[in-house]
């Protein structure tokens, strides 16, 4: 009989920086942030899949999503619930604004202490920052071992997990005692899709702020009747965090300067993929000694 696990997934809502291009760039070459949709950070979806896989391996386990962000980041938790997560916590407070990775890791670690999981699963990195720092920093703050770049969980039993890691130049299989933190690579399996039944079940899942904003008694009574529709919302005070370690004050790194990257256009000669066009091009390259 396998142990049941308490699993927490760290997930972030991010602007979709991968689709910066056409309409997301303003005429002056700067980013039009408003034009970027907010999405579930891609590698956090890989992380969620690993967590759900663990739950499949150890029935009775629970998967909760922890996200820090503005109120609308609750979308990430709902999305995760539609895919099989049991619930989640939104860590939201103006005091978090301006946090660098270290202050973020501190805040997350405060919330995780309160959730007390066996395994914390995070995506390797978020596409808006690409730092890959939060996973290891959270692990350090919690005093837990870390396994980064996880691609596959090979086994888990009482007190130990065996994981295959994908490194730049190879693979490694490691064992790690629980509790632990793992970060998951994009090379790990994609997340399972939303499930129609779960969408039905959780579509009214809301945080307390969302319910208050709607000012409809309907949701309050719904939530009282079905507690699983409650998305927990925590502030700085709820996780007993030290203000001095949060936001700008708690961030050792400061942004000194920002420059926009400007595209410069030049005229390309357009060719079709026809045999004649390709042939002519190759002959030109040979004649100009670009090739050969």
């Amino acid at each position: 009989m396998k142990k049941t696990l308490k699993i927490v997934v760290l997930a972030k809502q991010v602007p979709d920086t991968r689709n910066v291009g056409k309409d997301a760039m303003k005429a002056d070459g700067t980013v039009n942030r408003a034009a970027l949709p907010a999405i579930f950070n891609p590698e956090d979806l890989n992380a969620l899949e690993q967590a759900l896989t663990l739950k499949d391996m150890c029935p009775g386990s629970t998967v909760e999503v922890l996200t820090m962000g503005p109120p609308r980041a609750a979308d990430v938790i709902r999305d995760a619930m539609f895919r099989g997560a049991d619930g989640g916590v939104l860590l939201t407070d103006r005091k978090f604004a301006g946090s660098d990775t270290l202050a973020t890791s501190y805040a997350l670690s405060r919330a995780i202490r309160k959730m007390n999981p066996d395994i914390i699963v995070a995506g390797r990195q978020a596409i808006d920052g690409d730092t890959a720092q939060v996973g290891p920093q959270v692990a350090e703050k919690l005093g837990l071992p870390q396994v980064t770049y996880a691609e596959q969980i090979l086994s888990v039993d009482e007190g130990q997990i065996v994981i295959k890691r994908r490194l730049e130049r190879g693979v490694e299989v490691v064992s790690c005692p629980l509790p632990m933190v793992m970060t998951v690579n994009a090379s790990a399996p994609e997340c399972r899709p939303q499930h129609a039944k779960l969408v039905m079940k959780y579509k009214h899942a809301k945080t307390i702020s969302e319910i208050q904003a709607l000012q409809e008694d309907y949701y309050t009574s719904l939530r009282d009747a079905r507690p699983y529709l409650n998305i927990t919302e925590w502030s700085v005070a709820d996780v007993d965090a030290d203000d001095q370690q949060l936001g700008l004050t708690g961030s050792p790194t400061k942004v000194k300067k920002i420059e926009n990257v400007v595209f410069q256009a030049k005229e390309a000669k357009k060719l079709t993929g026809s045999d004649a066009d390709i042939n002519e091009l190759m002959q030109e390259l040979i004649a100009s000694h670009t090739l050969g």
Partner: peptide, 14 residues
Amino acid sequence: PAFGGNIIATIINP
């Protein structure tokens, strides 16, 4: 590079 590489940021740790 930051923000998907669309900006270049100078970071310091004073």
